[in-house]
Design a protein around this nucleic acid. Structure first.
Lengths: 291, 291
DNA sequence: TACTTTATGTGAGAATTTGCACAGGACTGC
DNA sequence: GCAGTCCTGTGCAAATTCTCACATAAAGTA
């Protein structure tokens, strides 16, 4: 059964009883219909129809085919309806990926977006490895650093996340707070373990003696925990710091500390209503994240 | 969704994950597969796959299609199996039609045939109107009279049904029995009401005075009832008369009384195993019906 | 009975579809 | 780091498929 179109033709003939009628419904010439039927019967070795002057009547075999193809037709119609609707509606899954750092900012946005579209399921992926849009792992990615230049990706600038230096009350009680940069040498800082190219980290390496960076973490979330615990002065997104009552802003936010963020989507999905709808929603929600 | 082959192509791509793999399975060039997918996506307005260098991964829409097409493929495979098998096996329906006269002879044959093929359903049609093979109303017809010459019918000679003249005991007691044809003028006969072309009826009109044909019926079955009830001397098939204990054979059987019977099948169904099987069975069973 | 309508069936040209060849990109293993 | 392999993608020629036109046959109708 390796030609589904012939089955479809036979289905219409069985349904309508005439070759001409089937040809009209299918939008082809009646000769085509005859050839399809002949080919199908020849391949199966069974007569599907009895030919007579008034048309074609289905044999048992033809009636069997009629029933099967009937359900197939129904299912395909439903499928087509779903698929066509899907392009225009915001349903199904929306998969977003970013560095774990942005989770606190993104979570409320995703929650609110899902609230607006009850039929939507949100998947938010963060992890060590980069989830790849070109393999369909995510619809939208939020990336930091230099402009991603994957060929099939649609990249647009997002916000520059406002970063500032914070210290916990616990730290301030024991070490005081620096009045300005000149006193940084007398304080302890929290930084990245690796020499990342994150602007704030590069700034830290330049302006703070290495020995004063006493608490080093491998990811930004642990850095946050360090700051809150009073392990030292460290960089936090303003939006994150606002959630803690025991933090004092030491300096900033400054534009040069933050890296530009990028919204990345796969070209195939970029123009879908779902992705577009989310992008506009995200941009609106992120207006006050800016430095 | 008016091109089922494209759905089938998309199904294989979704299943295998690559265009090349799908092309190999489908036995077409991979360029064809790509064009099918593009056409389908274009028509639906939805991306079914995300293209990347390692192949195609199905989007949600593609996975939806995969599921639907999966079941379709299964059902078509099963259908193909049934259909191919049907040509070779004796299952489903067997529809036989004849004049009601032959019902007593045919019934035991049909019953025995069905016994041999438990999966078979027998439909035996008799009626005033002729059931037409070319419209698929029956697989096999038993016809009397001159050779049917419908173009699409396969006609082969059947038996000449042995007919004889019978009288019931009730009649014999009251009127005696004729020794030979010369005494027919002193007896009462049962005949057809209309001037049918049945040989026995034509013989009756020639050899028996019209006034002696006192019981006239419109169908052969009523004629049988008339003979059994002793309304007169009448023609009965030998096989039918054998079933009654109160009948005495008056004359015959004679070849000139019986019309040749024909086995007729439609050319499209003639070579199927089911029809062939029934024809041989019927011929074997009818050997002793002959004159 | 002849005429109209509505079917199927078939050969030849037109149109679409398909296959081929080659290009280009990405991963793998040495 | 580099060759080999396995993908997708596209222009062009070949092949198949489709359409058109006409023939034929049966059933309804005046």
């Amino acid at each position: 059964m390796d030609n589904w179109d012939e089955v479809r033709t036979a289905y219409q003939v069985a349904r309508l009883g005439t070759v001409s009628g089937a040809a009209e419904v299918l939008g082809v010439h009646h000769a085509t219909v005859i050839r399809h039927i002949d080919a199908l019967e020849g391949r199966l070795g069974v007569k599907l129809f009895q030919r007579h002057a008034r048309g074609y009547t289905a044999t048992e075999a033809g009636q069997d085919l009629l029933q099967v193809a009937q359900t197939t037709d129904d299912q395909f119609s439903q499928l087509a309806g779903r698929l066509k609707g899907r392009g225009a509606s915001v349903t199904g899954e929306l998969t977003v990926t970013s560095l774990a750092t942005f989770s606190p900012m993104l979570a409320p946005v995703l929650a609110a977006f899902r609230e607006e579209h009850p039929e939507l399921t949100v998947r938010y992926l963060t992890g060590d490895r980069l989830f790849r849009l070109e393999y369909g792992e995510a619809h939208v990615a939020i990336r930091a650093g230099s402009v991603p230049d994957q060929p099939d990706n649609v990249v647009q600038p997002f916000v520059r996340q406002a970063l500032a230096l914070y210290a916990a009350d616990f730290y301030a009680e024991r070490h005081g707070l620096p009045k300005d940069e000149s006193e940084f040498g007398d304080h302890f800082f929290i930084g990245h373990d690796a020499e990342t190219r994150a602007p704030f980290n590069m700034w830290l390496r330049e302006h703070v003696p290495n020995d004063n960076i006493v608490y080093r973490t491998s990811d930004n979330r642990s850095m946050e925990d360090g700051v809150v615990a009073g392990a030292g002065i460290g960089f936090l997104p303003v939006k994150v710091a606002e959630r803690y009552s025991n933090l004092t802003k030491v300096a900033g936010p400054r534009p040069e500390w933050s890296a530009p963020l990028w919204l990345v989507t796969h070209v195939d999905l970029h123009r879908t209503a779902k992705v577009q709808s989310f992008l506009t929603f995200l941009k609106a929600a992120s207006k006050d994240w800016e430095v």
